[in-house]
């Protein structure tokens, strides 16, 4: 070894933001994180934990202690495939999958994710497509996500698309909800946006640095 570098790893109380736990606790399914025993069943059960920077157990432990930065910036929350294995097994009854969703929402709202990272972009595009047609068309969805995140990938992805298209499994003109019903749907979603904007206490989390994801910037927030 040619050189040893020393990294100070101490964490000071003043760096912590305990309100992030309160935010997750207020989310349906997140209320039990305070009874976590740190047994690691979630991390042991998770098919993706071997890829995670922090296992779900560590995320919950850090949440409790207010390590907001580490939690929200964690790559692990994007790896969760919502298979619900942890949720079913958790001896403390924590709905871990819902906790992961809550963390994704916080990260998306605050714009904390790697640039050109496909999962938040996928979520946003998915949402916009739904507001337009009421239904999702995977061809256009994938195309839009790839264009925004990794246009070069179109080159490697086309063979699969072609194979599906040949077999009649690719629909270029998506199925859509009838027009009046589509208007209804948008109206319904709007009610929730405005409803949330008016009757939900603003959270004391630092303001969003990322792009506004919903028209008008009214992202639904969990009650702080």
């Amino acid at each position: 070894m040619s050189r040893v570098s020393f990294v100070r790893k101490v964490k000071y109380e003043k760096e912590l933001q305990r309100d992030v736990a309160a935010e997750v606790i207020a989310t349906p399914g997140g209320e039990k994180i305070l009874s976590c025993l740190q047994c690691g069943t979630c991390g042991g059960a998770c098919p993706l934990s071997v890829y995670m920077d922090h296992t779900p157990r560590r995320l919950i432990g850090m949440l409790r202690e207010g390590f907001k930065q580490e939690v929200v910036e964690s790559f692990a929350i994007w790896l969760c495939a919502s298979c619900y294995e942890c949720t079913v097994l958790c001896p403390a009854g924590i709905k871990v999958t819902d906790v992961m969703y809550a963390l994704k929402r916080i990260a998306i709202h605050e714009g904390i994710y790697p640039r050109r990272f496909p999962i938040p972009v996928l979520a946003k595009e998915f949402m916009e497509m739904l507001k337009g047609t009421g239904r999702n068309n995977e061809f256009w969805l994938v195309l839009r996500v790839l264009l925004k995140t990794a246009p070069m990938k179109l080159l490697t992805s086309w063979p699969l698309g072609l194979r599906l298209w040949r077999r009649g499994r690719m629909c270029l003109i998506g199925s859509r909800i009838p027009k009046p019903a589509g208007a209804d749907l948008r109206r319904m979603l709007e009610v929730l946006e405005h409803g949330n904007a008016s009757d939900v206490k603003p959270s004391n989390v630092t303001p969003s640095q990322g792009p506004d994801l919903l028209p008008g910037g009214a992202v639904s927030r969990v009650n702080a």
Binding site: Y101, A102, K104, L122, L130, L192, E193
Partner: peptide, 9 residues
């Protein structure tokens, strides 16, 4: 996917 953006919606 949608749950990652807005739970109530």
């Amino acid at each position: 996917t949608y749950m990652s953006v807005d739970e109530h919606q």
